[in-house]
C-alpha cells in the first residue's frame, strides 16, 4: 500500500524561525525565512563576542539540552528581564513576559537558524514582543493607566552602543537625526511606548509623531545601508 505522505520530512526539521513569530497556528506549509535579509554588516560576530556562544547554546537547546538552557538563562535572563521591566514597568508583568519568552526560546530553539547569526537579536525580539503584547493588553484592560515619566537616555548609555560594530553604526546614524526625532526612537524602543502614548507624553499631535517616526526610520535605514 503506497502512502501519499513521505515517511520523512527532513525539510521541516530545521525551519528558521524568528522572534517575531507568535506561537503559530497549525500550518503545514513550513515557511523558510527569505535569504534576502542583509546580514553582511549587521549580523556578524565582530565586536559581539557573546553571539557565537549564544548560537552554540541555542543549538544545544534545540537538541533538548536543559543544562545549556540553564546556562543561556543565566547569561541572558538579566538582560531580557531588564527589557521586560522597562516596557511593562511592573514586576509581576515583567516576570510573566520573561517567563513566556524563555518558554518560547526553549520550544522554538529547534527552529533558530544558526546560519542567520543573530541570536542576540532573536532573543531580544522574543522578550520585547512578549512585553509589548502584555503592556498593550494592560492599556485595554486599564484604560486610565498612566506610564511613569522616564528619564532621557544618558550619554553614558548611548556610548555603550559603540562597543559593537553594529551598535557603532547605529549610533552614528542616530547622531545624524534631529534631537527630537532621536529621542522619539530611543523612547519608543526602550520604553515600548505606542504612537499615542508618545504623542501624549511629548505633547505633540499624533499625526506629527507618526510621521516623525517614519521619517526617522527611513533615515536610519538609508544611513545603515552599505
Amino acid at each position: 500500500m503506497a502512502l501519499a505522505y513521505p515517511l520523512t520530512m527532513p525539510a521541516l526539521a530545521r525551519t528558521p524561525i524568528r522572534g517575531n513569530m507568535p506561537l503559530r497556528r497549525p500550518s503545514y506549509s513550513a515557511r523558510r525565512l527569505r535569504e534576502s535579509v542583509t546580514l553582511g554588516s549587521l549580523g556578524n560576530d565582530t565586536g559581539n563576542s557573546g553571539e557565537s556562544t549564544l548560537r552554540a547554546l541555542l543549538e544545544r537547546c534545540a537538541q533538548g539540552d536543559r543544562q545549556a538552557f540553564r546556562t543561556l538563562y543565566d547569561m541572558q535572563a538579566p538582560r531580557m528581564h531588564g527589557l521586560a521591566m522597562r516596557i511593562t514597568r511592573d514586576t509581576a508583568l515583567a516576570a510573566d513576559a520573561t517567563h513566556d519568552a524563555f518558554i518560547q526560546v526553549w520550544r522554538q530553539s529547534v527552529r533558530f537558524d544558526p546560519e542567520r547569526g543573530a541570536a542576540g537579536a532573536w532573543l531580544t525580539s522574543i522578550v520585547r514582543y512578549r512585553a509589548l503584547d502584555i503592556a498593550r493588553r494592560r492599556i485595554r484592560e486599564k484604560p486610565g493607566y498612566e506610564p511613569p515619566e522616564q528619564e532621557d537616555e544618558s550619554p553614558d548609555a548611548l556610548s555603550q552602543m559603540i562597543s559593537s560594530t553594529e551598535g557603532a553604526a547605529l549610533h552614528r546614524c542616530l547622531d545624524q537625526l534631529e534631537p527630537d526625532r532621536r529621542k522619539l526612537i530611543l523612547r519608543a524602543y526602550a520604553d515600548g511606548l505606542s504612537h499615542s502614548e508618545l504623542s501624549e507624553s511629548m505633547g505633540t499631535p499624533l499625526g506629527t509623531i507618526k510621521s516623525w517616526i517614519r521619517r526617522a526610520l527611513i533615515a536610519l535605514k538609508e544611513c545603515l545601508s552599505p
Partner: peptide, 27 residues
C-alpha cells in the same frame, strides 16, 4: 517577514540602552 527580520537586526543594538535587571529568584 523578511522586512521584520531585517529591522530586528538593525535596531537590536538599542537594547544595550536598557539596564539589566536580575529576575526574581523563583523565576
Amino acid at each position: 517577514n523578511s522586512a521584520i527580520a531585517a529591522w530586528e537586526i538593525r535596531l537590536s543594538p538599542l537594547a544595550v540602552l536598557v539596564s539589566p535587571v536580575t529576575p526574581p529568584p523563583e523565576l
